[in-house]
Computed example of a mutant assay.
Amino acid sequence: MVVALDGFLDAGNAGALACRHLVRTGASSPDGGGVVVATFDVDQLHDYRARRPPMTFARDHYEGYEAPRLVVRLLHDAGGTPYLLLHGPEPDIRWEAFCRAVLEVVERFGVTLVVSVGSVPMAVPHTRPIAITHHANNADLLTGTSPWRGELRVPSSAQALLEVRLGEWGHDAQGFVAHVPHYLAQLDYPRAAQGLLEQVELAARLTIELTELGELAEEREEEIARYLSANDEVQEVVTALEQQYDTFARAEAEGSSLLAEDEPLPTGEEIGRQFEQFLAGLEGPDETGGPA
């Protein structure tokens, strides 16, 4: 089952684009959309005041209310292999109840693997390959090396909690997060969606037709190139990001450090002492003898 929730992890609308592409290309029924096999009670999960659904005001009346829907669809890949797609707005509340409801879907339909997709804004240039962070609740599922070292404290999401809970309940789950250039995070960025679905193909052993998404990605890249050619300041930012990216890539490939030679990393205690001295300086008197 593929999971793509709108909201938090969706820079460049990469997850939403990937989801729409799956629905459009994976529907087995002539009218499209696939078959909805499970629905969630959105009224129990959605904060309408925080994320107000759109509707139309037509001259003198309201119409066309677009109610949020969180559903599971049955789709098929290009080779006819069936799979499920869970998509819709990320729950605002009752995450634990949401996870238990997803568990019911997983067990009722005999799902053997859950794969989530998402994207985050990063200080990376669009002219370099899309980086993907791989994660899983079972180390045997990982298909790539993590670009991160050590631990990071990050805001949680319903998708992240779902992966944790499924692991505790004995079900495999993994996911992929695309790194979207931060200056493109508010635009539709099909190249990130394409990169995510390529990873889904490998992880879930599906065959997904990506030609249309690839064409959209090329069109968007051409639009970005035209914009940069007419805006020197933005081009300078991209050039700086390219230099930074290439420097780190070379250091990674050569196994070298970006630290100056003969400059060891300070210990935690040394950093703590320096910080204490800094705070003490803020609390002391200023040069005129008055309070700082």
Rank of each mutant, 00 (worst) to 15 (best):
H171E: 10
V180P: 11
R191P: 00
W169G: 00
P181C: 08
A193K: 08
W169L: 13
H182V: 05
Y183H: 00
V180H: 05
F176M: 11
P190D: 08
F176C: 03
A193S: 10
R191H: 09
L187C: 10
V177G: 09
G170W: 12
R165Q: 14
D188G: 04
E163H: 15
A185W: 11
P181Q: 01
E168A: 01
E163W: 09
E168W: 06
A192V: 09
L187N: 10
L187R: 15
G167F: 13
Y189I: 08
R165C: 12
L166A: 02
L162C: 11
E163D: 10
P190A: 05
A185N: 09
G175M: 12
F176D: 12
E168Y: 00
L187T: 08
R191C: 05
V180E: 08
R191T: 05
H182R: 03
P181W: 01
R165H: 15
Q186K: 08
P181A: 03
A173F: 00
G175S: 09
L162R: 10
A192R: 10
L184N: 04
L187G: 02
P181M: 01
A178Y: 10
G170N: 14
F176N: 08
E168T: 06
F176L: 05
H171K: 12
L162D: 06
W169I: 02
P190S: 06
L161E: 12
A185S: 15
W169T: 01
P181I: 02
E163C: 14
Y183Q: 01
V164L: 13
P190L: 02
Q186E: 07
Q174H: 00
L187D: 14
R165I: 07
V164H: 14
V177S: 14
A178N: 05
L161R: 15
A185P: 01
A173K: 04
Q186N: 03
Y183S: 02
L161M: 13
A193M: 04
Y189L: 02
G175K: 11
R165A: 10
G170Y: 15
P181L: 06
V180N: 07
D172L: 06
G167I: 13
L187E: 11
H182F: 01
D172K: 02
Y189W: 08
Q186V: 07
A185K: 13
V180K: 06
A178W: 03
V177C: 15
Y183G: 06
L166T: 08
V164S: 12
W169S: 07
D172M: 05
H179P: 03
V177W: 15
H182N: 03
P190H: 05
H171W: 12
Y183A: 01
V177I: 15
A178V: 07
L187K: 14
H171P: 01
V180S: 08
V180L: 02
E163K: 00
P190W: 00
F176A: 12
F176K: 06
H179W: 14
A178T: 10
Y183I: 05
W169R: 11
H179G: 15
H171M: 04
Y183T: 00
E168L: 07
Y189N: 05
R191N: 06
L166N: 07
E168Q: 15
L187H: 12
L166D: 10
A173S: 02
L166I: 06
G170C: 14
H171G: 09
L162N: 09
H179M: 11
Q174D: 00
R191L: 05
A192P: 05
E168P: 01
